[in-house]
Design a protein around this nucleic acid. Structure first.
Lengths: 214, 214
DNA sequence: GTCTATATTTCGATAGAC
DNA sequence: GTCTATCGAAATATAGAC
């Protein structure tokens, strides 16, 4: 009764189960951490949301903090990928416009991840401080150089690139982090048309504000 | 041995002690709730920060939730008072500019209150939902009408007033809520000059974005 | 790899002396 | 009004059978 041979390139059955369960737990954790914060979230709540016994969570993630760390890293990587939208064009209106579009789309598709990030940063970034000092700082400096080049070419007005980036982050993520407040004032969740309008307004006001469009 | 007569208009000694201790506890609670969220905060931490025994907190505030509610209401009232800055002028550049100035000043002076508000809204506003549906909604609708009048007069471009308000809230509060991220990228806390520049950039880009200034 | 039962810690809240 | 000691509930984490 030997084990049947297995293609080493294909993940083992055990690995498959692990990946599937980790993804299940991470999705549940993202939702619970977003709804309750780190302190307010309980492993029991996450387990219930994932439909697993609480002990299984500790089998896949040693501690509550490990699980939380993975959730925060996830949204950060999604934003980094979207940041490439800024390189789609030499035209600042198109490049920056595409970045705003991408960030707004993520606010709609991943509001929970955005909230967990906001929670983490608001509380001093105890878990991802090193990301801020390395990856995010490098990325930011690169974009600042790019915006400064546009200014030097006279394609946008001489604004402070750093604060433009902050304004883009603030406005786009506001639609995720403060989505409940916006929905309340809107008397209901935003429709497709509402999101289209929000995206257009943010793009238009910011791009006109820096002189990228008339 | 009768008690000495007391001027009824002046608060009693007991009332004075109560008010002083409540203020002390509220200040400590604002800081701890901002740093740890509602769930992450503990009455012990707040007591230590206030320099009082834990039992005294329960003497002044029946429950942890009562204490939290008071902290959230405080920042909301501060913002409402500052909102009057928008009525300083019939000129949209001056009126909206003054509102942005006031909001930025509060982000600097009350960053913890802003964070607690963000925490509360991000988690579905379980405590101040009624404020959103009454006071904030009324205030918002009033400002929308005012901005629409400016549009009708041709003094600003035909943007969506609601989303302009969201952008003002998002950008100004970002400097409080994400202050840690900004300080990290800035390699240190913002100086007076940094705050002046941030305020000017936000004002300029938003006001130019809506056509209130050339 | 799964799950029940439980150990251990911590927190919110209170009792009661001063 | 203040403070020490403590209760009872709830949380994280683990042990151990399956």
């Amino acid at each position: 009764m030997n084990e049947s041979p297995r293609d080493p390139a294909r993940p083992s059955r055990r690995t498959e189960i692990r990946q599937a369960n980790e993804a299940l737990i991470l999705a549940a954790a993202e939702k619970v951490f977003a709804e309750a914060g780190f302190g307010g979230a309980t492993m029991q709540l996450i387990a219930d949301m994932a439909g697993l016994p609480k002990a299984n969570l500790h089998y896949y993630f040693a501690t509550k903090e490990d699980l939380y760390r993975r959730v925060v890293q996830n949204i950060f990587e999604i934003w980094l990928e979207a940041a490439e939208a800024m390189d789609t064009s030499d035209d600042p209106a198109l490049g920056i416009g595409a970045y705003i579009e991408a960030k707004m789309a993520i606010s709609r598709s991943h509001p929970d991840g955005s909230k967990v990030w906001a929670y983490e940063v608001m509380h001093g970034a105890p878990v991802i401080q090193d990301y801020l000092e390395t990856t995010l700082r490098d990325w930011t400096n690169g974009r600042i150089a790019r915006i400064e080049a546009w200014i030097a070419e006279g394609r946008i007005r001489p604004i402070a690139p750093r604060h433009l980036l902050y304004m883009i982050w603030a406005t786009t993520q506001h639609y995720a982090d403060f989505g409940h407040q916006i929905a309340t004032l809107n008397r209901g969740p935003l429709s497709d048309a509402d999101w289209r309008q929000a995206t257009d307004e943010v793009k238009t006001i910011l791009l006109r504000g820096i002189g990228a469009i008339p």
